[in-house]
């Protein structure tokens, strides 16, 4: 994905044949520019990952029944536990179901709004753009608190609905969370797709317009294919976000008893870590990070192949 983005611009800017050799001053500058990020990345990204893997390979042992607990190397003991932990896999299944339903709805809406903003049909575009984007400024915790009040049968301004349908029940609470996430992120995804639409030179569809193509045809046959990279980007971020769900369900727990302490994988990590069983929690984290990485990577590859065909 990335090479395609940058390579042409680089090549156009700097023909390598003509470029003078990198001087010592430039090498020093590179070091100066890269070092701060490099060190921080090492300390707060790379080392924690290694640390999590190491921790996940440890296990607690006691000498005798009442001896002091000691951490010893346990190999894949924790991972055996991870794979036997039905609550964890239920939570993974839950967020996957969530993602399969919520991500397409959210991105579909975002694409629809972006196309409408880009079409000549709409007046007051600036207003809509801001109104739809405003929820993005609401942190997940606050959004969950707000919607928690709106859902709760006794407090909601929509009492007529919430007294009939209990959105916080075990059957519906996952979709109540899906609605909160959609509410927060549609506008953000809409803006990413919209700015990608704005970057399309208008000449591309001027011709089609002169030929009498309708707005719908232009949207479907010209605009959507051209914004596929933006949609892929939003898709990857949505997948990552879905697997990481934590703030919304954790906050809604004070409104609904239907959310267990292992409702999402990250809640399971948090609950296990506060036992405290750091090794098992670390193993959960490693499995979750790996799953996220693989899933978003596969998604990128799969969509790229489709695009290049």
């Amino acid at each position: 994905m990335t090479r395609n983005h940058t390579a042409p611009a680089l090549a156009a800017g700097a023909p390598p044949a003509r470029k003078p050799k990198t001087s010592a001053a430039q090498r020093r500058a590179v070091l100066l520019f890269v070092a701060p990020f490099g060190l921080l990345f090492l300390a707060f990204y790379a080392v924690p990952i290694v640390f999590a893997i190491v921790q996940s390979l440890l296990t607690v042992e006691r000498k005798g029944t009442f001896g002091p607990p000691q951490q010893v190397f346990g190999g894949f003991v924790q991972y055996q536990q991870v794979f036997q932990n039905t609550e964890f896999w239920e939570s993974v299944g839950r967020v996957l179901l969530f993602g399969v339903v919520q991500v397409p709805i959210m991105l579909g809406l975002a694409l629809l709004f972006a196309l409408l903003l880009d079409s000549p049909l709409l007046k007051g575009k600036k207003f809509f753009r801001l109104a739809f984007f405003a929820p993005y400024a609401v942190p997940g915790v606050i959004a969950a608190i707000m919607w928690g009040f709106l859902y709760s049968p006794s407090l909601s301004p929509f009492g007529a609905v919430t007294s009939q349908v209990n959105f916080l029940s075990a059957d519906l609470v996952l979709w109540a969370i899906a609605n909160i996430v959609t509410w927060v992120y549609v506008g953000y995804n809409m803006l990413i797709i919209y700015s990608s639409l704005l970057a399309i030179p208008t000449e591309i569809y001027e011709a089609a317009k002169l030929d009498g193509a309708s707005n719908l045809q232009i949207a479907w046959r010209i605009k959507i294919p051209l914004v596929v990279p933006a949609i892929i980007l939003t898709g990857v971020f949505s997948i990552i976000g879905t697997l990481q769900l934590l703030a919304e369900p954790q906050t809604l727990r004070s409104f609904s008893s239907a959310i267990s302490s292992t409702f999402t994988p990250n809640l399971a990590v948090y609950t296990t870590a506060s036992v405290p069983n750091y090794s098992l929690a670390a193993a959960f984290s490693v499995v979750l990070a790996l799953a996220t990485f693989v899933l978003s990577f596969v998604f990128l590859k799969a969509t790229q192949r489709k695009v290049s065909q």
């Binding site: 990335t2 990345f41 707060f44 990204y45 080392v47 924690p48 990952i49 640390f51 999590a52 921790q55 990857v236 990552i240 697997l243 990481q244 934590l246 990250n266 990590v269 870590a273 750091y278 929690a281 670390a282 984290s285 490693v286 979750l288 990070a289 996220t292 990485f293 978003s296 990577f297």
Partner: peptide, 20 residues
Amino acid sequence: VVLSGVLVPATALALPLFLI
């Protein structure tokens, strides 16, 4: 490496960061 960092979920780092 930076790009793979984009794909690593930040929450997966929270617990190991706490341990460190």
